[in-house]
């Protein structure tokens, strides 16, 4: 199946300078995203997971150019995103929408839902002025709110409803790609399930493409087609959903999966408990960044940065960045 690439990120780097010293010079960098390459196909949901500080949100912000990337290329819908001028980029945001974690903080409290939705349409000038309100009502119904709520303010809605408003706003300009940055993380479980179902249905209906940034692997398993696992600014594993959950290759992915509490008291499972904390992204470990916590680490891991590799026992498109995949699979290497 030849899928069309909608977004292609190549060697993306995002370093944030740290000022210090007598004269406030740049003394170091936070390497939030360090050489990340991936692509998103049209109509799929690609998730990026990882713990805090892994660079998943920074990646999303870099694609939207909310922060200008330090280096790398971002190709979107056949064009170079980074070459666009500020005003062209603003126009491009019509195709590139975002839904944030905190719907309350991202909606203007002094605007009614109607104003919020029509404003987005006005900025992108996608629909004639007279039809905007009608379109806003349609959108509300699409996301499961009713037309009668259109003149209300954000504070009159519950958290889940506000997130629906956020989704309606993103949809209002008919985007090609929606970046969901922890879009359901703040919601209660019962409401989170509603929003997840809504996102899935919308995708089917409007052929949307999602870049889904999250830390909850349950949510990610439910919504994704493919998944990227990040650790300290680098991709450690990328695979289709089934391969990632059934046949994880990278020791970090394995421990991450085993660390999630399972809602079944009778499930037997072996838990890999990692030692220590995630190191600081200011001076990340050399070689494989995971080596300080990895139960399989050798001297090689301390010096050589591993490449993403696909091996015979892995499905096509499944790649992991570990020097010892072969030996771990055959059992020649045991955790220490």
């Amino acid at each position: 199946m030849a899928q069309k690439e909608l977004l292609k990120v190549t060697n993306l780097k995002q370093y944030f300078p740290i000022k210090g010293g007598f004269l406030g010079r740049t003394v170091n960098h936070v390497k939030a995203v360090d050489d990340v390459t991936f692509e998103i196909f049209e109509g799929e949901t690609l998730s990026v997971v990882g713990e805090s500080g892994c660079g998943k949100s920074t990646t999303g912000r870099a694609i939207l150019r909310l922060d200008e990337p330090t280096a790398g290329e971002i190709e979107f819908d056949g064009g170079d995103l980074l070459a666009l001028s500020k005003s062209d980029m603003r126009k491009k945001r019509k195709d590139l929408q975002v839904i944030f974690q905190d719907p309350y903080a991202s909606l203007n409290p002094r605007q009614t839902v109607a104003q919020i939705l029509t404003e987005a349409m006005a900025i992108q000038n996608v629909i004639p002025k007279k039809e905007r309100r009608k379109r806003a009502i349609e959108l509300l119904e699409t996301v499961g709110l009713n037309a009668g709520q259109i003149d209300r303010y954000p504070h009159e809605f519950s958290g889940g409803q506000r997130q629906r408003v956020g989704i309606a706003r993103a949809l209002s300009v008919n985007p090609k790609l929606i970046i969901c940055d922890e879009a359901v993380s703040a919601l209660d479980v019962s409401v989170q399930a509603q929003v997840l179902n809504l996102l899935k249905n919308l995708q089917r209906e409007f052929k949307l493409t999602f870049l889904f940034i999250a830390h909850d692997l349950g949510v990610v398993r439910h919504i994704s087609d493919r998944i990227i696992v990040m650790y300290l600014g680098k991709i450690v594993e990328i695979a289709d959903k089934k391969s990632l959950f059934d046949n994880p290759q990278h020791p970090y992915t394995k421990s991450l999966l085993s660390a999630i509490p399972t809602p079944d008291p009778e499930a037997k499972k072996e838990r890999i408990i990692l030692k220590g904390d995630v190191p600081s992204p200011i001076d990340p470990p050399t070689g494989c960044r995971f080596h300080t916590r990895c139960p399989f680490a050798t001297d090689l891991c301390k010096t050589e940065v591993p490449d993403l590799r696909n091996l015979d026992h892995m499905k096509e498109g499944h790649r992991a960045a570990c020097h010892h995949i072969e030996k771990i699979v055959t059992g020649d290497m045991q955790p220490t």
Binding site: S190, Q192, D216, G218, R221, T262, P263, A267
Partner: peptide, 10 residues
């Protein structure tokens, strides 16, 4: 309902 709302990782 709560149990049926959880997206499971397993």
């Amino acid at each position: 309902g709560l149990l049926k709302s959880i997206p499971r990782h397993d």
